[in-house]
Design a protein around this nucleic acid. Structure first.
Ligand SMILES: [Zn+2]
Length: 161
DNA sequence: CGAGTTTGACCCGCGC
DNA sequence: GCGCGGGTCAAACTCG
């Protein structure tokens, strides 16, 4: 335990900032299920949201988050938690790669082709047990150079950043 | 060896 | 009642 690998300023924490170009990140408007792409363009043009997020990743980035708190514990013999207790946060980031790490470990669990779009949709899930946060990454159909990342759920564990 | 990733198949809800 | 779509899980493979 003596100093054998002491790294004073070589921590990976700096990676976090350099991985997410704030100037290249934009705010995406998520309205239940319908987003106005045209309107969105105008929004991101001069509309930045100062929303507080559950995670410390967004920082000054803006994000549309929809929090639905609904708890209906039904012990009738059916454990089908389908309530909208998942917060959906959509982000539009300008990047050619979508495998950026946001401080959490994600495990891909599905890839699907989006109809009317030549780009596939990737489904990711938090690797932490007990954490059922989902992440969906998809390329913009109108702007392939942009990537839309949608976070669903809330982490039940502290980020390993 | 383990975890993560890959692709296909399966499942369920909803629409008509 | 059946079909379709979207979404999810699982097995297998790969990489470190
Ligand atoms: Zn998590």
């Amino acid at each position: 335990m003596s100093g054998d690998n002491t790294k004073p300023s070589d921590s990976p924490e700096s990676d976090f900032t350099k991985q997410w170009p704030s100037e290249l990140s934009e705010y995406l408007n998520l309205d239940d299920d319908q987003w106005s792409y045209d309107d969105l363009d105008s929004f991101v043009s001069g509309h930045v949201f100062s929303h507080k997020t559950e995670a410390n990743e967004v920082g000054e980035l803006g994000g549309s988050s929809t929090h639905h708190e609904e708890f209906s514990i039904r012990d009738d013999g059916n454990e089908h938690e389908k309530k909208e207790v998942r917060d959906r946060v959509a982000f539009k980031t300008k990047s050619e790669i979508e495998i950026m790490d946001d401080g959490f470990k994600w495990r891909k669990y599905g890839k699907k082709m989006v109809k009317n779009s030549p780009n596939p949709r990737n489904y990711y899930r938090c690797s932490v047990e007990g954490c059922s946060v989902k992440k969906v990454v998809e390329r913009d159909k109108d702007d392939p150079r942009y990537v839309i990342t949608t976070y669903v759920g809330t982490h039940t564990h502290p980020s390993y950043n």
